[in-house]
Design a binder for these strands. Structure first.
Length: 281
DNA sequence: GGCCAGGCCTCGC
DNA sequence: GCGAGGCATGGC
């Protein structure tokens, strides 16, 4: 087994795991986080002094994980650009220091956030896991020091559109997708018939990508913005769900102009994380 | 056991 | 264009 050690500022994988932007990244203990993403199992060991061990090769780190965890962006200068009069956001950014916006697989992001609507994050996690267990490929983690034993016995990749064969609506009902089952079916059709492709979405400008996504069955403004922010790295996007609306109502008198930030999505993630995990306000 | 969850669709106006 | 109602299921 190989691993790499990297020194990274402003990077907190535990907060990222708690942040609700991805559903397959989990804290193992105080110094270890694991995820299945991009078809691979990855574990991160927190070594201290901004040093992190990644359970992958140097090539994989450079070609996959550096981009996935958005490690080349200067978050410190983005945080420094926060409106000094915005006390709530300033507190949220301090509290959430180390969160980065993941660039997740587009198809996984679409299916996951279709499932996410009107459910709690633990419940989304359960449903997404079942989806992978049913349709994904088995992955066997190979780890040694400085890593620890994985949480679960078995891991499965998130299936690609091509890997989804012989599925029916019943399969999605069986995993607990509820009324979203037909939305999932429709999304799979869109990809398998190539009405939607990775390159079409990647190459679309923001307006076009938003239009393509909201045309999908079961994808409205909120889910489309999540897909754009967490799957297409469109940082101007600012998804507003019931939590965000509550923040805006309580702390901003019902309206919030996020358009002043080029990376509004990062601010959104700070606020969302602060509201959900900091119980004292 | 009741309430709410990273909302969206359809219908009626 | 906009508001109301309905929605399957899991966690707490």
């Amino acid at each position: 087994m190989s691993f790499v050690i990297k020194n990274i500022e402003c990077f907190d994988p535990i907060k990222i795991a708690e942040s609700g932007q991805a559903f397959r990244i989990h804290q193992i203990d105080d110094t270890h986080v694991e995820t299945v993403a991009l078809g691979k199992y990855l574990q991160i060991a927190i070594l201290g002094d901004n040093n992190y061990a990644f359970s992958c090769t140097e090539d994989e780190f450079n070609s996959l994980w550096s981009k996935y965890f958005d490690l080349t962006r200067d978050y410190k200068s983005i945080i420094a650009g926060i409106d000094p009069d915005d006390e709530y956001l300033k507190a949220a950014a301090i509290y959430g220091y180390g969160i980065r916006i993941l660039k997740q697989d587009i198809f996984e992001t679409i299916i996951s956030f279709i499932i996410s609507q009107r459910r709690s994050i633990p419940s989304i996690t359960t449903c997404v896991d079942r989806f992978c267990e049913k349709f994904g490929k088995k992955i066997t983690p190979k780890l040694s020091d400085p890593f620890v034993s994985p949480i679960k016995n078995e891991y499965y990749s998130f299936p690609t559109p091509k890997e989804l064969n012989n599925w029916s609506i019943k399969d999605f009902n069986d995993i607990g997708a509820g009324y979203r089952s037909e939305y999932i079916a429709s999304a799979i059709h869109d990809f398998q018939e190539e009405k939607l492709t990775y390159s079409l979405l990647e190459n679309a400008d923001d307006d076009k990508a938003y239009e393509l996504l909201t045309k999908m069955h079961g994808v409205g403004p909120k889910v489309a913005n999540c897909i754009m922010l967490f799957g297409l790295a469109r940082f101007t996007r600012f998804p507003i769900d019931v939590w965000m609306q509550r923040i805006i109502d309580r702390h901003y008198n019902g309206s919030y102009d996020y358009s002043i930030y080029k990376e509004a999505g990062i601010m959104q993630q700070f606020m969302f994380y602060y509201e959900r995990t900091e119980k004292t306000h």
